[in-house]
């Protein structure tokens, strides 16, 4: 498979442009992958960066930069938005990033059909409208959708189970991209498989578009329990566990040592209230994604602000009470317990 060099014009020229005209969003940027690689293959007299250690598998040279943006998003809320107006509301509410998509998961559920990557023009409009990072979703395994999102300069790509999967067996090889990826997981094995494919950030899958937090809680609990088991396991047990979870042994060892995932881990899928956000933070998540929960509710701006405050002050029940008052109608929601297994988006992904 050819590397995603959709626009392989001299990257140095492009970097130059970027440096001299920083505020103008270029319509189509080529990835500065070569530049970044060149930059970091320079002889390093001082000790190499230890942040690059975040992935135990031989990391791409710019992994510290990819995972670094996720670290900057920590303690924040990433909101699904479908147009410029919503993106501005999200930014003014204090979102640390937005996810640009044509339909929020709740609508994808109702309307059915094949859900695909959004129109690049719509994503670019949002990129121009806000100064915070903009993420966008690509279908599982759809390399070309990822290439397109990288070419328009999206800050993070979500290879997402919310869209209809494009590859029945594989996820995208994310190492070949310069744009960082976030991927969903239901358990530790799935998280570590995604990280070994190059994901620089993980989120729980939860059950998107339901407004029911139970699946996000289940997935976070599973990951936490498996990490706890790994931490107290002997090396022989770890090898058995790596086979059982179908994941990379060195990554599992790293989790056991760190007592957490080696990359930033957000909660996603079903978060609809400030209390939901704080619940996930108390379970050890680094931040939250809120999809349909905000713009499918009565007073989006107020709810968005409340969820941002709740994510920062997740351990302060007084603040949580204050921000939970008078938020109006929450999204209607679907009870996950009464849902057919076939309707669950989180089953997608391998």
């Amino acid at each position: 498979m050819a590397p995603p060099t959709a626009n392989d014009s001299p990257t140095t020229t492009l970097n130059n442009t970027a440096a001299t005209e920083p505020s103008r969003p270029l319509a189509f940027r080529s990835q500065s992958r070569r530049a970044v690689n060149d930059n970091s293959t320079e002889p390093t007299p001082s000790k190499p960066t230890t942040a690059a250690k975040m992935s135990a598998s031989e990391p791409q040279s710019s992994f510290a930069v990819k995972a670094g943006l996720a670290q900057m998003l920590k303690g924040g809320v990433i909101m699904d938005v479908i147009n410029v107006e919503q993106a501005r509301i999200a930014e003014e509410a204090g979102a640390c990033a937005v996810m640009a998509l044509e339909r929020v998961p709740a609508d994808i559920r109702v309307q059915g059909g094949v859900a695909r990557m959004s129109d690049p023009a719509m994503i670019q409009d949002i990129m121009r409208a806000v100064t915070i990072p903009v993420m966008a979703k690509a279908r599982i395994g759809h390399v070309v959708e990822c290439q397109i999102l990288q070419a328009i300069g999206v800050d993070y790509i979500d290879e997402s189970e919310v869209l209809t999967p494009a590859d029945p067996t594989n996820h995208v090889d994310k190492h070949t991209f310069n744009t960082p990826f976030v991927c969903g997981c239901r358990n530790l094995g799935e998280a570590l498989r995604r990280i070994s494919e190059g994901a620089a950030m993980i989120r729980t899958k939860g059950e998107a578009g339901t407004g029911d937090v139970v699946e996000a809680v289940r997935h976070m609990q599973t990951v936490n329990a498996e990490i706890a088991r790994a931490s107290s396991a002997s090396d022989a047990d770890l090898r058995a566990m790596a086979r059982e979870l179908e994941c990379d042994l060195s990554l599992l060892r790293e989790c056991a040592k760190l007592k957490r995932l080696p990359v930033v881990n957000f909660a996603a899928g079903g978060i609809a209230t400030p209390a939901d956000a704080a619940l996930m933070m108390q379970m050890g998540c680094d931040g939250v994604f809120v999809g349909s929960g905000i713009f499918k509710s009565g007073d989006a701006a107020k709810r968005a602000k409340a969820i941002v405050q709740a994510t920062t002050h997740y351990n302060d029940p007084k603040v949580l009470a204050e921000v939970s008052i008078g938020l109006g109608e929450a999204m209607v929601g679907i009870n996950c317990m009464h849902m057919g297994e076939a309707d669950k988006l989180s089953k997608r992904g391998w």
Binding site: N15, A18, A19, P22, S23, P25, R29, Q31, S32, A35, V36, N39, S40, E42, T44, P45, S46, T49, S61, S62, A64, V65, G68, L69, M127, T131, P133, Q150, G153, V154, D155, Y156, N178, T179, P180
Partner: peptide
């Protein structure tokens, strides 16, 4: 200061 001087995430980098 100028925010996002170097551009978006794809223009982020490491340097000695």
């Amino acid at each position: 200061v100028r925010r996002n001087y170097f551009g978006r995430q794809v223009e982020s980098f490491e340097a000695e």
